[in-house]
């Protein structure tokens, strides 16, 4: 089914798909870097900051581009004309992860931001550990979502 869609996709939808996929790849890359840096920092403030800034300066813009691309292609493909119950599971998985993932990303940024600010007083590392745990959860959710969006189970 998915390959049939890809083969018959009008060329004008490609920009929307590129925006969506490109943003998602940047988002996952930023999340992978954040998780890795926060997990392997061993208390090194500079590496902990790298982890936080990967979330703020890479993952967050990636999420925004991914979400804009998702809305664009959702509208181009006419899914918004269908009732919710008629929409396939993979679209539901995509929206759920995008919205709740965005919310979790925001929470992790706020918690991590406080943690980074407290690093100057040798505090805040437990807050950054919380950010790391949220990042791991998000990374796992994104792996499932990429599988669902590409394989389109229904």
């Amino acid at each position: 089914m998915s390959t049939v869609l890809a083969a018959t996709r009008p060329t004008e939808w490609n920009w929307a798909l590129l925006t969506h996929v490109g943003g998602a790849m940047i988002l996952v890359g930023g999340m992978l870097t954040a998780t890795t840096a926060l997990a392997l920092a061993r208390g090194d403030a500079r590496v902990l900051r790298l982890g936080y800034w990967s979330l703020l300066a890479v993952a967050l813009p990636g999420w925004i581009v991914m979400f804009a691309g998702a809305n664009w292609i959702y509208s181009e493909e006419g899914w918004d004309d269908l009732p919710e119950e008629a929409q396939p599971t993979w679209i539901g998985i995509g929206w759920t992860t995008a919205l709740f993932g965005g919310l979790l990303l925001l929470i992790s940024l706020i918690v991590g931001g406080i943690g980074v600010a407290r690093l100057r007083r040798d505090k805040g590392s437990w807050l950054l550990k919380s950010t790391m745990v949220i990042s791991i959860v998000l990374l796992a959710a994104y792996v499932v979502t990429v599988w669902a969006m590409a394989g389109k189970p229904d």
Binding site: A24, V28, L32, T33, T36, V58, V146
Partner: peptide
């Protein structure tokens, strides 16, 4: 996704 995520990590 793994490939590009790794590339992004290297860039950062």
């Amino acid at each position: 996704f793994a490939l590009v995520s790794g590339m992004v990590l290297f860039w950062i």
